[in-house]
Amino acid sequence: MSESIRKIRVLVAKPGLDGHDRGAKVIAAAFRDAGFEVIYTGLHQTPEMIVSAAVQEDVDVVAMSVLSGAHLTLFPRVKALLDDAGADHVLLTGGGIISEDDMAALDEQGIGKLFGPGTPTTAAIDYIREWFSTHEAV
């Protein structure tokens, strides 16, 4: 078994018009503390801007923070654009004010796990590590 020495590269992204970035910044800092390489997009990003940054930075993971209720529009849009750009190997995950029903609906569309309010940062870190270890092996 080969132990991965490459750092996991994560794009933390804040799509849409919502400026509430407390969660995005906390998770970005927690990812960095966990040893990930983190790129933060800043605010008010369109799906196109996010995907372009993901491709340019050659990331493994895109983690989006959506508190605005627009998650049913934004996650599928970013997923489709990633696929179009030949980046379907990238894990699209995220968190925010997202109901369990909506999480299930997005899961069916091939979006990774989403995390609701009150989730410890370690849950997202463990999830990404686990995903990375299984996908690196392939």
């Binding site: 849409g16 018009l17 919502d18 008010h44 369109t46 605005s68 209720g69 627009a70 049913l72 529009t73 934004l74």
Partner: peptide, 18 residues
Amino acid sequence: DFPTLMGYDADHARSLGE
């Protein structure tokens, strides 16, 4: 809503979904 808070009309491209 967020479009109004940012000064976008409801039919602006940036308002989609919000």
